[in-house]
Amino acid sequence: MTDRTGLDRIFKPSEEIVAREIEGELIIVPLTAGIGDIEDELFTFNASGRAIWKGLDGRKPLKAIIGELAAQFEGDPEEIEEDVLGLVEELVKRRIVVEVV
């Protein structure tokens, strides 16, 4: 049985944003109203955020992303899981990613 509230969930970039990679920076440009608090606000990711973002491709469940990151960075899986869930929560709140249902 699939746990739709946990690590089986799949997310993808929202159609309300445009994600651009410029000069090594990942930049999220809001497309629709209400994503930035002010009119000329863009969003950038730190290194951890960028690593997680790459996995949010509409195909991989969160647990697969966590597994890949754990293998890639040899980090503590529990800490990585906390990081991934933390970022996803933040991105959903900002309407930058949506869950694939």
Binding site: E23, E25, T44, F45, N46, G75, E79, D83, E90, R94
Partner: peptide, 26 residues
Amino acid sequence: MPPKDGDGYVTRTRSDKAGLWVRGGP
């Protein structure tokens, strides 16, 4: 896992301000 910088993963930046580019602009 690369370290988190500060409190969050996402930084809101006004694009007319310096600081958007780490490696120099496009």
